[in-house]
């Protein structure tokens, strides 16, 4: 990673032509698709993008149209990191043999939470262990939205999905969200970070940092899905913001294992009174509607308790400099 941090203004970014183009077929108010646009705004030169099967892969590549202005490859669902491995290997050897003249070619792999935490975890772990030079971007909308809102291991406690429906006996998903960034940090990666598109400047900066790493980098981007969350499409960015303000999804980065809160989360750590209750984030989302009943009130309490606990642990990790 370069020591000189990339400086940019909003106007620089706004004026940079989109590399993920308009005319895609994402739902109105889709935050993951904003993530794609913003990630592409951070590219620094020749770049190849590869995607796992999923909403964000479908919406931009329906033949005979493409929304990708960059070279782009999709092969299957569980293997975005293996695609990146193959592309990285090809670039390395072809540069050595003089078949590629570019000084570098950045590789970005993009997958949803299903393609990262569940079916894609093996390929991701393997590619990171092998040290391929790529940035893996997880857009986390907390479920299998492309196939009609099924539970993933990233779906949070209490959320109702079509395979963890809120019933009369079981109140939605019972299990915790899989701590994917902790798993990636355990791989001793040079760069692991979290982001969410409301804080677009932070997101773009982190993408660029991830690209500058020589080796694998991992970026976990929290991205509200109005269709799957049964929320108002106009409020996708508001939920993105609320996820940080309630500490449901704090944003931070870890460079060589040293973890540091990013400004919006740091502000809350310095002024804890600014931390909003999780209710502010949960209400308005249809997937949590069943929790706002007397018999399920304890689940909201549990979400608040576990959110606070994770936040405290994160603060300790940041303070101690440990991963």
């Amino acid at each position: 990673m370069t020591t000189q941090e990339w400086k940019f203004t909003a106007k620089d970014i706004a004026a940079k032509p989109d590399l993920f183009l308009s005319g895609h077929r994402a739902c109105a108010g889709c935050a993951p698709v904003s993530v794609l646009r913003l990630v592409m705004k951070a590219t620094r030169g020749p770049t190849i993008v590869t995607q796992a099967t999923g909403c964000m892969e479908i919406v931009g590549s329906i033949y005979p149209y493409t929304s990708w202005a960059l070279p782009w490859l999709h092969t299957a669902f569980e293997n975005a990191a293996a695609n990146a491995s193959g592309i990285d290997a090809a670039i390395k050897i072809m540069r050595k043999k003089g078949k590629i003249k570019d000084e570098y070619v950045d590789v970005i792999a993009i997958a949803g939470d299903g393609g990262t935490l569940d079916i894609g975890l093996q390929a991701l772990s393997g590619a990171v262990e092998r040290g391929h030079d790529f940035l893996f971007v997880l857009y986390d909308n907390e479920g299998y939205m492309n196939t009609g809102i099924q539970r993933s291991s990233s779906t949070p406690i209490g959320a109702s999905t079509t395979t963890s429906p809120a019933g009369s006996v079981i109140p939605g998903k019972l299990e915790k969200k899989k701590p994917i960034t902790e798993i990636m940090l355990a791989h001793e990666m040079e760069y692991v970070a979290t982001a969410t598109p409301y804080y677009w400047k932070d997101l773009i900066t982190k993408v660029r940092k991830g690209l500058e790493v020589e080796g694998p980098a991992f970026l976990h981007v929290f991205a509200p899905c109005p269709r799957g969350w049964r929320s108002d499409p106009a409020k996708s960015m508001e939920y993105s913001k609320l996820s940080v303000e309630t500490c449901v999804f704090p944003i931070w980065e870890a460079v060589n294992g040293k973890r540091q809160l990013s400004t919006p989360s740091k502000v809350i750590s310095l002024a804890p009174q600014k931390k909003k209750p999780v209710k502010a984030y949960l209400e308005g989302q249809g997937r949590f509607r069943h929790l706002f009943t007397p018999q399920n009130a304890h689940i909201i309490e549990e979400i608040q308790r576990s959110t606070d606990e994770r936040w405290e642990k994160l603060l300790q990790k940041c303070a101690s400099g440990a991963t």
Partner: peptide, 18 residues
């Protein structure tokens, strides 16, 4: 690779890259 699935994927992707 860590599996044959990834082996074939990586070959596909490398071949796609030329």
């Amino acid at each position: 690779t860590e599996s044959e699935h990834s082996a074939m994927t990586a070959c596909l992707a490398a071949a796609a890259a030329g």
